[in-house]
Design a binder for these strands. Structure first.
Lengths: 181, 181
DNA sequence: TGCAATTATATCGGATTGATATATTTTTTG
DNA sequence: CAAAAAATATATCAATCCGATATAATTGCA
Protein backbone atom coordinates (compact mmCIF):
# COMPACT_ATOMS: atom_id res chain seq x y z
CA UNK A 1 0.00 0.00 0.00
CA UNK A 2 1.48 3.29 -1.06
CA UNK A 3 0.51 6.90 -0.71
CA UNK A 4 -1.40 6.83 -3.98
CA UNK A 5 -3.72 4.22 -2.50
CA UNK A 6 -4.20 6.20 0.70
CA UNK A 7 -5.05 9.31 -1.33
CA UNK A 8 -7.71 7.28 -3.11
CA UNK A 9 -9.02 6.19 0.26
CA UNK A 10 -9.24 9.74 1.54
CA UNK A 11 -11.10 10.74 -1.61
CA UNK A 12 -13.73 8.03 -0.94
CA UNK A 13 -14.69 10.25 2.01
CA UNK A 14 -15.31 13.23 -0.27
CA UNK A 15 -13.65 15.53 -2.78
CA UNK A 16 -10.54 17.32 -1.62
CA UNK A 17 -7.56 19.42 -2.68
CA UNK A 18 -3.98 18.29 -2.19
CA UNK A 19 -3.77 20.63 0.75
CA UNK A 20 -6.84 19.13 2.37
CA UNK A 21 -5.55 15.63 1.82
CA UNK A 22 -2.36 16.59 3.64
CA UNK A 23 -4.45 17.93 6.52
CA UNK A 24 -6.40 14.68 6.66
CA UNK A 25 -3.15 12.75 6.95
CA UNK A 26 -2.12 15.01 9.81
CA UNK A 27 -5.38 15.22 11.68
CA UNK A 28 -7.08 11.92 11.13
CA UNK A 29 -4.43 9.49 9.99
CA UNK A 30 -1.56 10.72 12.13
CA UNK A 31 -1.54 7.48 14.08
CA UNK A 32 -1.24 5.23 11.08
CA UNK A 33 0.42 6.85 8.10
CA UNK A 34 2.48 9.90 7.31
CA UNK A 35 2.68 11.67 3.96
CA UNK A 36 4.29 14.92 2.85
CA UNK A 37 3.46 17.29 0.00
CA UNK A 38 6.42 15.85 -1.84
CA UNK A 39 4.55 12.57 -2.17
CA UNK A 40 0.94 13.75 -2.23
CA UNK A 41 1.13 16.12 -5.22
CA UNK A 42 2.98 13.66 -7.45
CA UNK A 43 0.55 10.93 -6.31
CA UNK A 44 -2.45 13.05 -7.39
CA UNK A 45 -0.82 13.73 -10.73
CA UNK A 46 -0.25 10.04 -11.34
CA UNK A 47 -3.77 9.12 -10.23
CA UNK A 48 -5.16 11.71 -12.63
CA UNK A 49 -3.08 10.28 -15.48
CA UNK A 50 -4.47 6.83 -14.71
CA UNK A 51 -8.01 8.26 -14.57
CA UNK A 52 -8.47 6.94 -11.03
CA UNK A 53 -9.29 10.47 -9.94
CA UNK A 54 -10.58 13.49 -11.82
CA UNK A 55 -9.54 17.03 -11.23
CA UNK A 56 -11.53 20.24 -11.62
CA UNK A 57 -9.97 23.65 -11.22
CA UNK A 58 -12.15 25.76 -8.99
CA UNK A 59 -11.74 29.42 -9.85
CA UNK A 60 -11.41 31.69 -6.85
CA UNK A 61 -11.78 35.44 -7.01
CA UNK A 62 -8.62 36.48 -5.32
CA UNK A 63 -6.68 33.32 -4.57
CA UNK A 64 -5.06 31.09 -7.14
CA UNK A 65 -7.24 28.32 -8.52
CA UNK A 66 -7.97 25.39 -6.26
CA UNK A 67 -7.58 21.94 -7.76
CA UNK A 68 -10.35 19.78 -6.38
CA UNK A 69 -9.91 16.04 -6.85
CA UNK A 70 -12.69 13.44 -7.01
CA UNK A 71 -12.36 9.69 -7.08
CA UNK A 72 -13.73 8.06 -10.23
CA UNK A 73 -15.59 4.75 -10.54
CA UNK A 74 -12.45 2.95 -11.63
CA UNK A 75 -10.64 4.61 -8.74
CA UNK A 76 -13.13 3.06 -6.35
CA UNK A 77 -12.64 -0.38 -7.82
CA UNK A 78 -8.89 -0.02 -7.67
CA UNK A 79 -9.09 1.06 -4.05
CA UNK A 80 -11.30 -1.89 -3.17
CA UNK A 81 -8.82 -4.26 -4.80
CA UNK A 82 -5.97 -2.74 -2.83
CA UNK A 83 -7.91 -3.02 0.42
CA UNK A 84 -8.59 -6.70 -0.22
CA UNK A 85 -4.87 -7.45 -0.38
CA UNK A 86 -3.16 -8.63 2.77
CA UNK A 87 -1.64 -5.58 4.44
CA UNK A 88 2.14 -5.47 4.60
CA UNK A 89 4.01 -5.42 7.90
CA UNK A 90 4.17 -2.27 9.99
CA UNK A 91 7.12 0.00 9.43
CA UNK A 92 8.24 1.73 12.54
CA UNK A 93 11.17 3.95 13.31
CA UNK A 94 11.72 5.49 16.71
CA UNK A 95 14.71 7.70 17.31
CA UNK A 96 13.64 7.86 20.94
CA UNK A 97 13.95 4.11 21.45
CA UNK A 98 17.11 3.99 19.37
CA UNK A 99 18.68 6.55 21.71
CA UNK A 100 17.62 4.55 24.75
CA UNK A 101 19.42 1.52 23.35
CA UNK A 102 22.63 3.47 23.88
CA UNK A 103 21.70 4.93 27.26
CA UNK A 104 24.88 3.48 28.76
CA UNK A 105 26.90 5.91 26.65
CA UNK A 106 24.95 8.96 27.80
CA UNK A 107 24.90 11.04 31.00
CA UNK A 108 22.15 9.86 33.30
CA UNK A 109 20.60 13.34 33.39
CA UNK A 110 20.18 13.25 29.62
CA UNK A 111 18.45 9.88 29.75
CA UNK A 112 16.13 11.03 32.54
CA UNK A 113 15.16 14.19 30.72
CA UNK A 114 14.58 12.23 27.54
CA UNK A 115 12.16 9.92 29.30
CA UNK A 116 10.43 12.80 31.09
CA UNK A 117 9.90 14.56 27.79
CA UNK A 118 8.61 11.41 26.18
CA UNK A 119 6.06 10.90 28.91
CA UNK A 120 4.98 14.54 28.64
CA UNK A 121 4.68 14.17 24.88
CA UNK A 122 2.55 11.05 25.14
CA UNK A 123 0.29 12.73 27.69
CA UNK A 124 -0.06 15.65 25.32
CA UNK A 125 -0.95 13.31 22.49
CA UNK A 126 -3.55 11.57 24.63
CA UNK A 127 -5.21 14.86 25.50
CA UNK A 128 -5.26 15.87 21.83
CA UNK A 129 -6.94 12.55 21.04
CA UNK A 130 -9.42 13.10 23.88
CA UNK A 131 -10.45 16.35 22.28
CA UNK A 132 -10.99 14.74 18.92
CA UNK A 133 -12.63 11.60 20.28
CA UNK A 134 -15.66 13.39 21.60
CA UNK A 135 -16.43 15.13 18.32
CA UNK A 136 -18.98 13.52 16.08
CA UNK A 137 -17.25 10.69 14.32
CA UNK A 138 -17.70 7.30 12.78
CA UNK A 139 -17.22 4.16 14.83
CA UNK A 140 -13.98 3.60 12.93
CA UNK A 141 -12.58 6.92 13.97
CA UNK A 142 -13.50 6.28 17.58
CA UNK A 143 -11.82 2.91 17.28
CA UNK A 144 -8.62 4.49 16.01
CA UNK A 145 -8.71 7.28 18.58
CA UNK A 146 -9.06 4.88 21.47
CA UNK A 147 -6.48 2.60 19.94
CA UNK A 148 -3.99 5.46 20.09
CA UNK A 149 -4.90 6.24 23.65
CA UNK A 150 -4.53 2.60 24.71
CA UNK A 151 -1.07 2.30 23.16
CA UNK A 152 0.14 5.64 24.49
CA UNK A 153 -1.15 4.81 27.94
CA UNK A 154 0.60 1.45 27.89
CA UNK A 155 3.82 3.16 26.89
CA UNK A 156 3.59 5.73 29.71
CA UNK A 157 2.98 3.04 32.29
CA UNK A 158 5.84 0.94 31.01
CA UNK A 159 8.24 3.86 31.02
CA UNK A 160 7.31 4.87 34.56
CA UNK A 161 7.74 1.37 35.90
CA UNK A 162 10.92 0.46 34.07
CA UNK A 163 12.89 3.64 33.52
CA UNK A 164 15.15 2.76 36.43
CA UNK A 165 16.61 -0.06 34.32
CA UNK A 166 18.05 2.50 31.93
CA UNK A 167 18.87 5.17 34.45
CA UNK A 168 20.97 2.79 36.51
CA UNK A 169 22.80 1.83 33.32
CA UNK A 170 23.60 5.37 32.18
CA UNK A 171 26.75 7.30 33.02
CA UNK A 172 26.71 9.14 36.32
CA UNK A 173 27.45 12.84 36.11
CA UNK A 174 28.33 13.74 32.60
CA UNK A 175 31.83 12.47 32.35
CA UNK A 176 31.35 11.45 28.78
CA UNK A 177 30.82 15.03 27.72
CA UNK A 178 34.16 15.96 29.27
CA UNK A 179 36.21 13.15 27.85
CA UNK A 180 36.38 14.90 24.53
CA UNK A 181 39.90 15.80 23.44
CA UNK B 1 19.10 10.19 13.02
CA UNK B 2 19.76 8.20 9.90
CA UNK B 3 20.94 4.71 9.15
CA UNK B 4 24.56 5.81 9.08
CA UNK B 5 24.24 6.84 12.73
CA UNK B 6 22.60 3.56 13.68
CA UNK B 7 25.38 1.63 11.94
CA UNK B 8 27.88 3.58 14.03
CA UNK B 9 25.89 2.66 17.13
CA UNK B 10 25.88 -1.02 16.27
CA UNK B 11 29.64 -0.88 15.73
CA UNK B 12 30.10 0.50 19.26
CA UNK B 13 28.98 -2.96 20.37
CA UNK B 14 31.79 -4.63 18.41
CA UNK B 15 33.21 -5.02 14.92
CA UNK B 16 30.89 -6.38 12.29
CA UNK B 17 30.35 -6.99 8.59
CA UNK B 18 27.51 -5.42 6.64
CA UNK B 19 25.72 -8.73 6.79
CA UNK B 20 26.04 -8.91 10.56
CA UNK B 21 24.80 -5.34 10.92
CA UNK B 22 21.72 -6.28 8.94
CA UNK B 23 21.18 -9.24 11.26
CA UNK B 24 21.49 -6.97 14.27
CA UNK B 25 18.81 -4.69 12.85
CA UNK B 26 16.56 -7.70 12.38
CA UNK B 27 17.19 -9.51 15.62
CA UNK B 28 17.87 -6.82 18.17
CA UNK B 29 16.52 -3.59 16.74
CA UNK B 30 13.45 -4.97 15.01
CA UNK B 31 11.21 -3.06 17.39
CA UNK B 32 12.77 0.32 16.79
CA UNK B 33 14.38 0.68 13.40
CA UNK B 34 14.41 -1.06 10.05
CA UNK B 35 17.23 -1.03 7.54
CA UNK B 36 17.83 -2.88 4.30
CA UNK B 37 21.05 -3.80 2.50
CA UNK B 38 20.25 -1.05 0.07
CA UNK B 39 20.91 1.47 2.82
CA UNK B 40 23.45 -0.37 4.98
CA UNK B 41 26.14 -0.97 2.36
CA UNK B 42 26.10 2.59 1.02
CA UNK B 43 26.10 3.84 4.63
CA UNK B 44 29.23 1.84 5.43
CA UNK B 45 30.92 3.15 2.31
CA UNK B 46 30.15 6.74 3.28
CA UNK B 47 31.24 6.19 6.89
CA UNK B 48 34.52 4.75 5.63
CA UNK B 49 35.05 7.75 3.36
CA UNK B 50 34.51 10.05 6.34
CA UNK B 51 36.91 7.92 8.45
CA UNK B 52 34.21 7.33 11.04
CA UNK B 53 34.72 3.61 10.56
CA UNK B 54 37.66 1.61 9.29
CA UNK B 55 37.43 -1.48 7.18
CA UNK B 56 39.70 -4.51 7.05
CA UNK B 57 39.29 -7.24 4.48
CA UNK B 58 39.45 -10.58 6.22
CA UNK B 59 40.73 -13.18 3.81
CA UNK B 60 38.87 -16.44 3.94
CA UNK B 61 40.15 -19.65 2.40
CA UNK B 62 37.23 -20.54 0.25
CA UNK B 63 34.71 -17.74 0.62
CA UNK B 64 35.06 -14.27 -0.77
CA UNK B 65 36.74 -11.78 1.54
CA UNK B 66 34.76 -10.55 4.48
CA UNK B 67 34.80 -6.80 5.08
CA UNK B 68 34.93 -6.23 8.80
CA UNK B 69 34.12 -2.71 9.94
CA UNK B 70 35.33 -1.06 13.16
CA UNK B 71 34.28 2.25 14.59
CA UNK B 72 37.12 4.78 14.89
CA UNK B 73 37.71 7.31 17.66
CA UNK B 74 36.16 10.10 15.60
CA UNK B 75 33.28 7.77 14.84
CA UNK B 76 32.64 7.41 18.56
CA UNK B 77 32.64 11.15 19.06
CA UNK B 78 30.31 11.65 16.14
CA UNK B 79 27.97 9.01 17.49
CA UNK B 80 27.96 10.62 20.93
CA UNK B 81 27.12 13.98 19.38
CA UNK B 82 24.24 12.44 17.47
CA UNK B 83 22.90 10.73 20.59
CA UNK B 84 22.96 14.01 22.50
CA UNK B 85 20.61 15.61 19.95
CA UNK B 86 16.91 15.58 20.69
CA UNK B 87 15.47 12.54 18.93
CA UNK B 88 13.06 13.26 16.08
CA UNK B 89 9.45 12.13 16.18
CA UNK B 90 8.52 8.52 15.58
CA UNK B 91 7.74 7.50 12.05
CA UNK B 92 5.08 4.88 11.89
CA UNK B 93 3.22 3.31 9.02
CA UNK B 94 0.66 0.58 9.48
CA UNK B 95 -1.11 -0.87 6.48
CA UNK B 96 -3.15 -2.93 8.92
CA UNK B 97 -4.61 0.13 10.64
CA UNK B 98 -5.00 1.93 7.34
CA UNK B 99 -7.11 -0.96 6.09
CA UNK B 100 -9.24 -0.89 9.23
CA UNK B 101 -10.00 2.77 8.59
CA UNK B 102 -11.91 1.61 5.52
CA UNK B 103 -13.54 -1.40 7.15
CA UNK B 104 -16.97 -0.08 6.13
CA UNK B 105 -16.04 -0.72 2.50
CA UNK B 106 -14.99 -4.33 3.10
CA UNK B 107 -16.88 -7.57 3.68
CA UNK B 108 -17.21 -8.29 7.39
CA UNK B 109 -15.51 -11.66 6.99
CA UNK B 110 -12.44 -9.96 5.59
CA UNK B 111 -12.26 -7.54 8.50
CA UNK B 112 -12.67 -10.34 11.03
CA UNK B 113 -9.96 -12.44 9.46
CA UNK B 114 -7.67 -9.46 9.31
CA UNK B 115 -8.05 -8.86 13.03
CA UNK B 116 -7.68 -12.55 13.85
CA UNK B 117 -4.44 -12.67 11.89
CA UNK B 118 -3.18 -9.54 13.57
CA UNK B 119 -3.81 -10.96 17.01
CA UNK B 120 -2.10 -14.19 16.03
CA UNK B 121 0.84 -12.23 14.67
CA UNK B 122 1.22 -10.17 17.83
CA UNK B 123 1.07 -13.33 19.96
CA UNK B 124 3.75 -14.83 17.78
CA UNK B 125 5.89 -11.74 18.21
CA UNK B 126 5.45 -11.85 21.97
CA UNK B 127 6.57 -15.45 22.12
CA UNK B 128 9.62 -14.64 19.99
CA UNK B 129 10.47 -11.84 22.40
CA UNK B 130 9.96 -14.18 25.35
CA UNK B 131 12.57 -16.49 23.92
CA UNK B 132 15.07 -13.68 23.47
CA UNK B 133 14.31 -12.01 26.79
CA UNK B 134 15.55 -14.87 28.89
CA UNK B 135 18.93 -15.03 27.13
CA UNK B 136 21.79 -13.24 28.76
CA UNK B 137 21.40 -9.58 27.91
CA UNK B 138 22.04 -6.09 29.09
CA UNK B 139 19.45 -4.21 31.13
CA UNK B 140 18.79 -2.10 28.06
CA UNK B 141 17.91 -5.08 25.95
CA UNK B 142 15.61 -6.41 28.63
CA UNK B 143 14.00 -2.99 28.76
CA UNK B 144 13.38 -3.02 25.03
CA UNK B 145 12.16 -6.59 25.03
CA UNK B 146 9.62 -5.96 27.75
CA UNK B 147 8.65 -2.69 26.12
CA UNK B 148 7.72 -4.63 23.00
CA UNK B 149 5.75 -7.13 25.01
CA UNK B 150 3.87 -4.42 26.86
CA UNK B 151 2.87 -2.64 23.67
CA UNK B 152 1.91 -5.81 21.82
CA UNK B 153 -0.10 -6.99 24.81
CA UNK B 154 -1.94 -3.67 25.00
CA UNK B 155 -2.74 -3.92 21.31
CA UNK B 156 -4.11 -7.45 21.62
CA UNK B 157 -6.34 -6.48 24.52
CA UNK B 158 -7.61 -3.40 22.72
CA UNK B 159 -8.39 -5.37 19.56
CA UNK B 160 -10.25 -8.07 21.46
CA UNK B 161 -12.35 -5.58 23.37
CA UNK B 162 -13.14 -3.20 20.51
CA UNK B 163 -13.17 -5.23 17.32
CA UNK B 164 -16.96 -5.28 17.39
CA UNK B 165 -16.92 -1.54 16.60
CA UNK B 166 -15.40 -2.32 13.20
CA UNK B 167 -17.17 -5.56 12.56
CA UNK B 168 -20.57 -3.96 13.03
CA UNK B 169 -19.50 -1.26 10.57
CA UNK B 170 -18.29 -3.58 7.82
CA UNK B 171 -20.40 -4.89 4.96
CA UNK B 172 -22.42 -7.98 5.69
CA UNK B 173 -21.84 -10.87 3.36
CA UNK B 174 -19.50 -9.87 0.62
CA UNK B 175 -21.76 -7.88 -1.59
CA UNK B 176 -19.01 -5.47 -2.43
CA UNK B 177 -17.01 -8.17 -4.14
CA UNK B 178 -19.97 -8.90 -6.41
CA UNK B 179 -20.86 -5.38 -7.34
CA UNK B 180 -18.05 -5.26 -9.87
CA UNK B 181 -19.21 -4.63 -13.42
C1' DT C 1 22.85 -37.00 -2.73
C1' DG C 2 20.22 -33.23 -3.28
C1' DC C 3 17.79 -29.23 -1.58
C1' DA C 4 17.11 -25.43 1.40
C1' DA C 5 18.98 -22.16 4.33
C1' DT C 6 22.78 -19.27 5.64
C1' DT C 7 26.74 -16.37 4.80
C1' DA C 8 28.29 -12.43 2.20
C1' DT C 9 28.54 -8.24 -0.94
C1' DA C 10 26.47 -5.09 -3.94
C1' DT C 11 23.41 -2.26 -7.00
C1' DC C 12 19.19 -0.20 -9.05
C1' DG C 13 14.73 1.80 -9.73
C1' DG C 14 11.29 3.69 -7.42
C1' DA C 15 9.08 5.61 -3.25
C1' DT C 16 9.26 9.03 0.27
C1' DT C 17 10.92 12.76 3.30
C1' DG C 18 11.99 17.30 4.68
C1' DA C 19 13.19 21.56 3.12
C1' DT C 20 12.30 25.23 0.36
C1' DA C 21 9.96 28.63 -2.85
C1' DT C 22 5.95 31.51 -3.73
C1' DA C 23 1.90 34.30 -2.74
C1' DT C 24 -2.37 35.68 -0.72
C1' DT C 25 -5.68 35.82 3.23
C1' DT C 26 -7.22 35.29 7.81
C1' DT C 27 -6.44 35.32 12.62
C1' DT C 28 -4.10 36.58 16.65
C1' DT C 29 -1.78 39.56 19.57
C1' DG C 30 0.66 43.62 21.31
C1' DC D 1 -5.49 49.28 14.74
C1' DA D 2 -1.45 47.65 12.87
C1' DA D 3 1.94 44.26 12.75
C1' DA D 4 3.05 39.58 13.17
C1' DA D 5 1.81 34.94 12.80
C1' DA D 6 -0.77 31.23 11.02
C1' DA D 7 -3.46 29.24 7.49
C1' DT D 8 -4.53 28.36 2.58
C1' DA D 9 -2.67 26.56 -1.62
C1' DT D 10 0.57 24.44 -5.16
C1' DA D 11 4.85 22.61 -6.41
C1' DT D 12 9.72 20.89 -6.83
C1' DC D 13 14.34 19.02 -5.44
C1' DA D 14 18.14 16.63 -3.28
C1' DA D 15 18.85 13.23 -0.16
C1' DT D 16 17.33 9.14 1.89
C1' DC D 17 15.67 4.68 2.03
C1' DC D 18 13.20 0.28 0.66
C1' DG D 19 12.45 -3.96 -1.76
C1' DA D 20 13.91 -6.64 -5.25
C1' DT D 21 17.39 -8.69 -7.56
C1' DA D 22 22.04 -10.67 -8.84
C1' DT D 23 25.83 -13.58 -7.58
C1' DA D 24 28.12 -17.41 -5.37
C1' DA D 25 29.97 -20.48 -2.09
C1' DT D 26 28.95 -23.19 2.27
C1' DT D 27 26.52 -25.55 5.70
C1' DG D 28 22.90 -28.33 7.55
C1' DC D 29 19.69 -31.79 7.13
C1' DA D 30 16.53 -35.23 5.30
Amino acid sequence: MDIRTLCLGILTMGDATGYEIKKTFEERLELIFHASYGSIYPALKQLTDEALVSCRAEMQEKRPDKKVYSITASGRYRFFDEMMKKPGTDRFRSEFLATLMFAHLLPVITVSELIDERIADRLQKISTLDGRCVEKQTEREKFLCNYGRAIYQAEIEYLKENRYLLESDALFGNRAAHERP
